[in-house]
Simulated scan of single mutants.
Amino acid sequence: MAESETGTPTASAPATPGTPGAPLFTGLRVDSLSYDRKSMPRCNKCLPLDSWASPNQCFTDFPRPDVSLTRKIGAEFVGTFILIFGATAAPIVNQKYNGAETLIGNAACAGLAVMIVILSTGHISGAHLNPSLTIAFAALRHFPWVQVPAYIAAQVSASICASFALKGIFHPFLSGGVTVPSVSTAQAFFIELVISFNLLFVVTAVATDTRAVGELAGIAVGATVMLNILVAGPSSGGSMNPVRTLGPAIAAGNYKQIWIYLVAPTVGAIAGAAVYTAVKLKDDEGNAETPRQRRSFRR
Rank of each mutant, 00 (worst) to 15 (best):
A220D: 07
Q57M: 08
P172W: 12
N94I: 11
C58Y: 09
P248I: 14
Y276M: 07
K280E: 15
N198I: 09
S235V: 13
A207D: 07
A153G: 02
F197E: 09
P181F: 12
Q95L: 14
N241Y: 04
P91W: 04
N287A: 04
R299P: 11
R64M: 06
W52G: 01
A165D: 00
L199I: 08
A53M: 07
R244G: 10
S184F: 11
Q95N: 08
K72Y: 00
W145G: 04
C46M: 00
G238Y: 07
V275S: 03
G86K: 10
V183W: 11
A15E: 12
T277Q: 15
P63Q: 12
A212N: 07
Q95C: 06
V156G: 05
S239M: 01
V267Q: 05
A212M: 08
S175A: 14
Y151G: 03
P9I: 00
R294Q: 15
L83N: 02
A87D: 03
Y151V: 06
A162E: 02
L230N: 11
P248E: 13
V67I: 15
A278T: 15
N228A: 14
C161V: 15
V114E: 06
S39R: 10
A110V: 08
T224C: 14
P48H: 11
Q155L: 00
H142G: 06
F297N: 11
K38Y: 12
I160D: 00
Q95M: 09
A75C: 07
A212Q: 05
V114H: 10
S132Y: 01
H128D: 08
A15C: 07
S54P: 03
A53K: 10
P23H: 00
R295Q: 13
K72C: 05
G177A: 01
M226C: 03
T80F: 04
G126L: 04
A87F: 08
S39D: 15
G176W: 13
G177C: 03
N56A: 12
G105A: 04
T179A: 02
I160C: 00
V93F: 15
S239T: 05
R292W: 04
P63Y: 12
V275N: 03
N56I: 06
F137W: 08
